[in-house]
Amino acid sequence: MNIVVCIKQVPDTESVIKIAGDGKSIDTGDIKWVMNPYDEFGVEEALRIVKDQGGEVTVVGAGPARVVEALRTALAMGADKAVHIQDDDLYGADPIAVAKMLAKAIEPLSPDVVFFGQRAVDDDSGVVSSAVAEYLGMPQLSVITKLEIADGKVKGTRPIEGQTVVLEASLPAVISAQKGLNEPRYASLPGIMKAKKKPLETKTPADLGAERSDFIEIATLNPPPDRAPGKTVEGETAQELAANLAKLLKEEAKVI
C-alpha cells in the first residue's frame, strides 16, 4: 500500500491571532507552529494500515521553510519519507491554488490512498482534500471516523446531520480524517532521532510545473464582532437563580 498524507503546518490552537499592519494577513511573529490536529489522524491511520498491510507512507507539505518541522514530526511518528513544496508566500493562499500544487506533487507518487485532515484549523476551509481528489480523478470520502481497506476497496464511516453514512469506493481514493478515527501516537525519542536521517525532498512550485492561481482575495481581516457585556444572574438560592435565569431567557433574551 502506497500512502500519501498531506500535512499543513498551522498556529497552535492556543495562539493569539493578531491582524498584521496590512489589514489583510496575520502577524506571524509570536506564533507557535504545529501540525494541523486533524492531519495527525491521517498520519496515524496511514501508519496503522502500513503496519497491517505493508507499504510506505510519504508525507507532503507545502509552505515556507518552517513547514519542514511539521514534516519531521510526521517522520518521527513513523512516516517513511517527506516531500516539502517550498513556497515562501503560500501561507494564507486560496485553498484551490494549494490543492493544484499538492496534486502536482502527489501524482508522480502514484498513491493508493491519500489522507488529508478534514479541515485546517487556521483557514477552516475543508476545501483542499476534495479539490485534490478532483484534480487526481479520485473518489473522495470526507470527514471519516472509521475506515476499512481491503481487496482494493475502501469503506469509510461519515457522520452527517442526524445520520451516519457508510461510503464505499475503489482505490485509489482520497480520505479526509475526522476526530474519532484513531488516537494519534506521540513521536518517541528514538523516533525523533531516526526522523533526522529519513529522506526529505524539497521541491519548488517551478520543479512541479505548478503556477499559483489564487481566486480568493482577502479584502480585509477584522476582529470578531463585539458581544455586549454579560449579566450576573442574581439569587440567594439555586431555586431563585434558576427562576431569574428562566425569566431573563423568556422575557429579555426571548430565546425560550
Binding site: 498556529p11 490552537t13 495562539s15 493569539v16 491571532i17 491582524i19 496575520i26 484549523v121 487556521d122 483557514d123 477552516d124 480568493i216 482575495e217 482577502i218 479584502a219 480585509t220 481581516l221 477584522n222 476582529p223 470578531p224 464582532p225
Partner: peptide
C-alpha cells in the same frame, strides 16, 4: 477563520 478569532472579508 482561525476558529473565529478573526473574520475575513473575501
Amino acid at each position: 477563520i482561525y476558529a473565529g478569532k478573526v473574520y475575513a472579508d473575501v
